[in-house]
């Protein structure tokens, strides 16, 4: 057999890959998690650093988008005030399903140190959250780890339409 010819019978030579629909759909979903740019406070700086060249989110397929209609994951980075709460709900509703939410930092998780009248005590009072990321502020490595955990979570989910859309109410 000539060298340039592909030996289809050898391992890895077959131009056929066997998989399940769930796996291939989740493979696609988990490796193109476009994130909504949502820097609300100092966590936003760490989120920007994660996107920049040193930590380079692009290699995970996570590209920040400035539109909720183009993004799959919303990284809530920072303090959510009560005045702003209705806008986070509106942006979440504008994202196409399936969609995920990472709550980044103490303020987004629980209100953090802002135990006051003007701060929402956790974004999970407004929108359903998939992953809580502790820290004040979390380092970019932590956000990378959170995105990897979210990828693993997505891979373990069913890809079919029977998946219940996540709603708080």
């Amino acid at each position: 057999m000539a060298q340039h010819q592909v030996n289809y019978t050898q391992d890895g030579g077959l131009p056929v890959a066997l998989t399940s629909i769930d796996k291939i759909v989740n493979w696609g979903r988990s490796n193109s998690l476009w994130a909504l740019t949502y820097g609300l406070a100092c966590c936003g700086i760490e989120m920007m650093a994660s996107g920049a060249s040193r930590y380079d989110f692009d290699r995970f397929g996570t590209i920040f988008r400035a539109s909720p209609r183009q993004s799959e994951v919303m990284i809530v980075a920072g303090t959510l005030t009560k005045k702003h709460a209705e806008f986070i709900k509106r942006l979440y509703d504008q994202m196409a399903e399936p969609r995920w939410v990472i709550s980044m930092g103490s303020c987004a998780n629980t209100g953090g140190m802002f135990n006051t009248y003007a701060t929402v005590q956790g974004v999970d009072r407004i929108i359903p959250v998939d992953l809580y990321l502790p820290g004040c502020a979390p380092r970019p490595e932590t956000l990378q780890y959170a995105v990897m955990m979210l990828q693993k979570k997505i891979r373990s989910e069913k890809a079919g339409k029977s998946q219940r859309p996540k709603r708080l109410l």
């Binding site: 009560k82 709460a85 209705e86 709900k89 135990n115 006051t116 009248y117 003007a118 929402v120 009072r125 407004i126 708080l168 109410l169």
Partner: peptide, 19 residues
């Protein structure tokens, strides 16, 4: 006289407004 953690209106503001 305003409590730091908000009165009842403040405590439910975002819930009342959105849902």
């Amino acid at each position: 006289t305003y409590p730091l953690q908000g009165d009842e209106f403040a405590a439910w503001y975002e819930v009342d407004r959105i849902y």
